[in-house]
Nucleic acid binder design. Structure first.
Lengths: 110, 110
DNA sequence: ATAGTATTTAACCAATGGGTTAAATAAATA
DNA sequence: TATTTATTTAACCCATTGGTTAAATACTAT
């Protein structure tokens, strides 16, 4: 459940992308994520479920308080997305493309 | 209109992601993209509009047949996505994260 | 035991998304 | 000029999404 389409679908929502940014600083509780996003607990809970079932994050109980759930980023989906992105980027690295791009820059593109 | 959220929203749909893959091989007509994706012309047209209004592709008339519209990838949104991804990836490059990850690999994670 | 806290699940609702078919545009061709 | 051809736009429909509030779960604290 961690293919590219799942990953991109999970990241499509701004709230969920924001959660990823928050988790870059380390694992966070559901409550912290909700507060930081000014979002109700149920709403955040569902976003977290989407991120989890699509493989972007993983859940565990807080060691100090088993009521709380702590979420952290998983590496693989981001790595895979990076691989795909590099493939796409290769388009511009390609000589022919570079030539076309150059020709077009003269017409005010970028 | 080419921020990260727009880009990710545009890429969330599998058909649109497929279009990006097709355009990696060079510019393509709307009709070609529709056929390659086994999708009706109107449906593809709307996907192309989403990709265009969100800044991922650009449109021009075919030089040889002005009825046809040719689409090509734009660089910026993918570059920006790459920048963000690298920031996210930095999470795992971080020493402390690396340590945690190592500790957890002993419990069967990855 | 009782009450409080952290979070999820359920039920519901309005908005969005993606497909379809039919009509509109606009250019090439006969 | 009349007819195809390439594509978009419009109108419509159904499924999905993301939010809300209320209830359920499960643990902590008094």
């Amino acid at each position: 459940m961690a293919n590219l389409d799942n990953t991109l679908a999970a990241l499509a929502d701004p709230t969920r992308r924001r959660v990823v940014d928050l988790l870059r600083d380390g694992p966070r509780r559901a409550g912290e994520l909700a507060a930081a996003s000014r979002m109700s607990a149920p709403a955040m809970s569902r976003h977290l479920r989407v991120l989890r079932t699509r493989g972007l994050i993983e859940e565990e109980r807080a060691p100090d308080d088993a009521r709380a759930r702590v979420y952290r980023l998983r590496h693989k989906p981001f790595r895979d997305l990076g691989v795909w992105l590099d493939e796409v980027e290769a388009f511009w690295a390609d000589q022919l493309s570079a030539f076309k791009k150059h020709a077009e820059s003269k017409r005010g593109r970028r």
